[in-house]
Amino acid sequence: MIKFLAKKFFGLFPTLIGVSILSFVLIRLAPGDPVMLMLGERGADPVVYEQMKKNLGLDKPLFIQYAIFIKNISMGDLGKSIVSRRTVKEEFFDRFPATFELGFVALLIAIIFGIPLGIIAAIKKNGPIDLMVMGVSLAGYSMPIFWWGLILILIFSVTLGITPVAGRLSIMYDIDPITGLMLIDTWLSGEGLEAFIDAVKHLMLPAIAMGTIPLAIIARMTRSAMLEVLSEDYMRTAKAKGISPKKIIYVHGLRNALIPVVTVIGLMFGSIMTGAILTETIFSWPGIGKWMVSAVAARDYPVIQSGILIIAFMIIMINMLVDLVYAVINPKMRGQ
């Protein structure tokens, strides 16, 4: 087991180095000079321009810039945003809780609705309910979420007027970020129920938009895993022993069917990040996704290269964690 762990862990480094080179090189291929962008219209003065370039370290050869980048990262320095002049670390930790909160609630919605829908569909296989669940799940799976977000705004904000269109909280509430999670901070700040409900209202639509595709995948996965388990011999044995159908499905069936479902949920982190990029842009949600999109638009080199690295790192770590959990549950996986 320790050998397996060590192998997994050291196997990460080449991938991480690859990602760092990729992000570093890619963004430098982009047209548009960050120094010019920063100086704006006043950029005409060549002396100021050279000075600025030097300050940012952009006058050095590429591989030296890369070496500096890696050296700084290994010491925990992720660089400074060219636009805001704040450190990338600060900017990241400012925005991460927003994405975490959104992603967590989105995944929660997906699980709470996806698993029961999958179970019902499997039990009523080929019946009208099954067809409906599968139809809805297929539509959800095919959903362009940037459009789905707009439709949710159209229905709930424009037509019904229930929910706000953008942001995390109304301006009338002034809340210090303690945990960075609005659902918790509204309680901690003493603003009470009203502020909390306000935060929930802001969170609702983006979370639904972001949770739709995971929900569809989970429902489909639960259904097929459940169907497979239901056809196993031990299910027939359980039935023959006279165990009630409910107990067979929920105790014997669900528990075994959940293993592949949990794996799929664990590996969903990447698609959650994809969802975050589009959803946050539509709902002006101040998270990682919107941060990256605006950094690309502003050619904010340090933010993009470190941001990509952080996101890739998180995804790689979570995938490894899922692998590990899987190896603990199922020793057969360790050899592979």
Binding site: T15, I27, V296
Partner: peptide, 18 residues
């Protein structure tokens, strides 16, 4: 592995803006 460790849309955004 490297390409799959990034959200595809993020990579596409970066490439498209290049």
């Amino acid at each position: 592995d490297i390409m799959m460790s990034l959200p595809s849309i993020l990579l596409a955004i970066v490439v498209a803006s290049i």
